[in-house]
Simulated scan of single mutants.
Amino acid sequence: MTSVRRRLTRPVFLGPSAALMLMAAAGCSADDASAPVTDPTPSSEAAAYCRALHKELPSSVAGQERSGSGTGSNLTAGWGDGEIVLRCGVPRPAKMDDAQSKAIDANGVNWMLEQQQDGRPRFTTTYRKAYVEVTLSVAYAHDASPLAAFAPAVKKTIPNRL
Rank of each mutant, 00 (worst) to 15 (best):
L75P: 02
F13T: 05
S17L: 11
L75I: 00
G108I: 12
S17P: 00
A46N: 13
V138T: 15
A48M: 11
A141V: 01
A148L: 02
R66I: 12
P58R: 15
Q116F: 02
G70L: 07
P152N: 13
R128N: 12
E83N: 15
D98Y: 00
P11E: 04
S59Q: 15
E65Q: 07
L8Y: 00
A153T: 08
F150N: 07
P121N: 03
L57C: 04
A103C: 08
S145C: 11
H142L: 13
V12Y: 05
G63D: 12
H142Y: 11
A148P: 06
Y140D: 09
V37H: 00
Q117E: 12
K55Y: 12
P11T: 04
T9P: 00
A139P: 00
G70D: 11
T71M: 01
R6F: 15
S34D: 06
A33I: 02
A25D: 05
S73H: 14
M96C: 02
G68W: 04
T38V: 08
G63I: 04
Q115M: 15
C28Y: 03
P16Y: 01
Q117T: 10
G78M: 00
S29V: 09
G68R: 07
A103L: 01
M23T: 05
S69G: 14
A46H: 04
G78L: 05
M96P: 00
F150E: 06
T71I: 00
G15K: 02
T126E: 11
R161G: 10
G63M: 13
A77R: 15
C28T: 10
Q117P: 11
E83R: 04
D143E: 11
A153D: 06
K55W: 13
L162G: 13
A52G: 03
G68N: 04
S44L: 11
K102T: 10
G63C: 08
L57W: 14
V4T: 14
T125M: 10
A18S: 10
V4H: 03
L22I: 12
V138L: 06
W79D: 05
D32A: 01
V132D: 06
E83S: 07
S29D: 08
T126P: 00
N110H: 09
G27V: 12
P42Q: 15
N107L: 09
A94P: 03
P152T: 04
L86F: 04
R87L: 03
L136S: 01
H142Q: 14
P159V: 13
A35S: 15
E56C: 09
A35G: 03
R87A: 07
P11F: 02
S69V: 02
R161L: 14
D97E: 14
T135H: 03
C50D: 06
G119K: 08
G27T: 10
V90N: 01
A19M: 11
L86C: 05
P159S: 12
A62C: 04
D98H: 02
T157A: 10
T157Y: 11
A94W: 03
S69H: 03
P58Y: 06
M23N: 08
D39E: 14
A151D: 15
A153Y: 05
A46Q: 13
R51E: 08
R92F: 06
K129L: 09
D31P: 00
S145A: 07
R92V: 09
V61G: 03
V37G: 01
D98E: 09
N107K: 15
S3M: 10
P91D: 10
A141K: 01
C28G: 08
H54T: 04
A77V: 05
V132T: 13
A33L: 09
C50W: 03
P11D: 08
S101K: 09
